[in-house]
Simulated assay, not measured.
Amino acid sequence: MTAVDDGSAPVRVLVCDDQALIRTGFATIIDAQPDLEIVGECADGRAAVELAGRLRPDVVVMDVRMPVMDGIEATRQLAGTGVAHPVKVLVVTTFNLDEYVYEALRAGASGFLLKDAPPAQLLHGIRTVATGVALLAPEVTRQLVGRYAARIRPNQGTPEDVPLTARELAVLRLIADGQSNSEIAATLVISHETVKTYVSRILTKLDLRDRVQAVVYAYRRGLVS
């Protein structure tokens, strides 16, 4: 696989699914792209964790229900809080259940797709999470995390513990409220670029990977209800 035309290296992808046909199908679609490269395939979560340690993929395409170790636990070990060298995980499953979506995101996944999504959507998902952007739209994130807010909020500190300025805190609350950068800019009457700067500062100060983690953080600290 060659690098993309601008000279940058292709995104390295590891595919983990216990169904050989699906695994091969994903690998074939992904490896046909000039900016993507399959570096490995495996059939269970434990193998995914081991291979990721050796192959250093940029993105792992992860199934949920698998033998030996399921995709949620594998995601936690690859991308969860405290992992020394986290890997971006795109969970792809046949099960359209909110519980799976929530648990996958809480474990550290950067995105969630169904297996019946068209190939273009899978490729878009890989490219999106590879850039560090969460795949779910803000309103979807709010709906999912908000539904389970009572479960994740207790015993995680107080609003006074949050090391942000008043304006950064306001932006974080709007992120958790499901607003996009453009909507936040309109709400606070600031530029879109200024919002991007605030979001970047928030993620850096709180050591968060993306907006999904920011929403979870806000609910845990009781910043939103």
Rank of each mutant, 00 (worst) to 15 (best):
E99I: 15
T75I: 07
G111C: 09
N96K: 13
A109R: 02
L90K: 09
M66H: 09
I72Q: 00
P57I: 04
D98N: 14
A32F: 06
G111P: 08
A32G: 12
L90T: 06
D70R: 02
D116R: 13
R56S: 15
V101I: 15
D98Q: 15
D31W: 04
A48W: 03
P57E: 01
V101Q: 15
T94G: 15
R106V: 14
P34A: 13
V60P: 06
L114E: 04
D58V: 10
G45C: 10
R54N: 09
Q33M: 11
D58N: 13
L90E: 07
L114R: 06
P34K: 14
V68A: 07
P34H: 12
E73Y: 01
R65A: 13
P86I: 07
A43M: 11
L97C: 09
G108A: 06
R106Q: 15
E37V: 11
V59C: 06
A104H: 08
A117I: 10
V59Y: 07
G40R: 07
V89E: 00
G82D: 10
L105I: 12
D44P: 05
E99Q: 14
K88G: 09
P67S: 07
N96F: 03
C42H: 03
V39C: 08
L55V: 11
A104L: 09
N96I: 06
A117K: 11
P86T: 11
R56M: 06
V59M: 04
I30G: 02
N96C: 01
A52Q: 02
G108P: 10
V60F: 05
I30M: 01
F95G: 02
R65G: 01
D35A: 08
V101S: 05
T94Y: 12
A32C: 07
E99D: 14
S110W: 13
G80R: 10
D116H: 14
Q33A: 13
G108L: 10
R76Y: 05
H85I: 11
G80F: 06
V101M: 15
R54F: 03
D70G: 05
I30Q: 03
L90P: 09
D31K: 00
P67R: 02
G80V: 07
T93P: 07
Y100D: 15
A52D: 00
R65S: 13
E37H: 13
P86R: 08
G71C: 08
E37G: 04
V39H: 05
P67M: 00
A52V: 01
G71Y: 04
G45N: 04
V87G: 05
G53A: 05
R46D: 02
N96Y: 07
L78F: 11
D98Y: 07
P34D: 14
V68W: 01
Y100R: 02
D31M: 00
R65H: 11
E103C: 06
V60Y: 01
V39K: 01
G40Y: 08
I38W: 01
E103P: 00
E103N: 15
G82F: 07
